[in-house]
Design a protein around this nucleic acid. Structure first.
Lengths: 200, 200
DNA sequence: GTCTATATTACGATAGAC
DNA sequence: GTCTATCGTAATATAGAC
């Protein structure tokens, strides 16, 4: 829990400590006292850098949301066949999630008790809808199965991708972003079955 | 937040109120004051029924865990080809999750701040391992693709199934357990792609 | 930029009357 | 079985010295 203290903090460096503790204990389960111990400075010193706990949350989820929405602006997400754009977005989501792990983790755990949390939930819904549109287009172009409703499929695919934050830890010898992105793309598009044939 | 009060409570009826509030606000974000308002009785009356907040959590996650482990004892999960037992367990997990939605939701959101939470996490890991064993057996019998690591595949499939608690609401006209179980089984085993062929 | 000290509110839990 | 009143602790946040 206690961590090496820095000589001095900026809102940004303090944020990385706070996000780690938020993810360990949950946002509501984290007190300013917990943060001050983890940062190695007093509670009142934290208030010198940020207005309070909620500002730290807002900065963290903003960062995650910017990275996610950034994917949709990339060229491969905008041009080409919908199924290919979808696969690109799925792979990039995995990459962003792993690269910005603590920030995205926090975003995905937001519940809605504060104004900041409700804003984050709203933005997430927006992102979900943008990806659902992509899946709908791929279905219309005949590249994606039509026997699973688009909305349901989107939710399940997001569920699989987002669940990565529950277990991925970037400790050197672990799996790389590429390996996980490949596995997700394979399961999402071709499933577990060996021969890959339709059955149910 | 405030709810119609009952004439009297038992630990069980109180539990259903508590679990709903825990899921709305998060366990740490829920105070005994919140619970008392939702139940329509005073804080001290709650202590007449249960020892405290943590006992309510323990009762809730115990119920979810019992239902989940129960799946593994069912006949279709014990006899037959591993791939078929796996598909059965996947479908039953979806059904249990939807039938016991609030209890499983709470279980899946546990973080580990209290002894009860750490016990729940431990039991969840146990369950995960049991299902991973099934997937490993299916791979050895040649029914499941070998190019995605068993441990990784298990985690991703659990991620997809567990994410149902994030959006499913049993409001009459919504999707039924069967429809969701079918969709999950299709995506898990055959994937999104229309022709179902291996590519990546 | 950091500290100690403190104001104020909210929390979990208990005592004791009815 | 429920209530009001309250205890002791821990929470967010501020004041003011260095």
């Amino acid at each position: 829990m206690t961590t090496a203290r820095r000589d001095t903090y900026t809102p940004e460096t303090l944020l990385s400590v706070a996000v780690r503790v938020f993810n360990e204990r949950g946002y509501d389960g984290t007190s300013m006292e917990h943060l001050s111990r983890a940062a190695g400075i007093s509670k009142s010193s934290i208030y010198h850098h940020v207005a309070g706990k909620e500002e730290l949350l807002r900065r963290a989820v903003s960062r995650a949301l910017e990275e996610l929405f950034g994917i949709l602006d990339e060229e491969h997400a905008r041009v080409g066949r919908a199924a290919e754009r979808l696969e690109y977005v799925v792979r990039r989501m995995v990459e962003v999630l792993m690269a910005e792990l603590p920030y995205v983790t926090l975003l995905l755990r937001v519940r809605g008790n504060t104004a900041t949390e409700r804003w984050a939930l709203e933005r997430r819904r927006e992102f979900d809808h943008r990806v659902a549109e992509l899946l709908r287009a791929a279905a219309e172009e005949g590249d994606v199965r039509a026997d699973v409703e688009v909305r349901l499929a989107t939710r399940l695919v997001f569920g699989m991708i987002n669940s990565i934050v529950e277990w991925y830890r970037p400790d050197g010898r672990g799996m790389g972003e590429r390996e996980v992105a490949d596995a997700v793309a394979r399961l999402v598009f071709s499933g577990l079955r060996e021969d890959g044939r339709r059955e149910g």
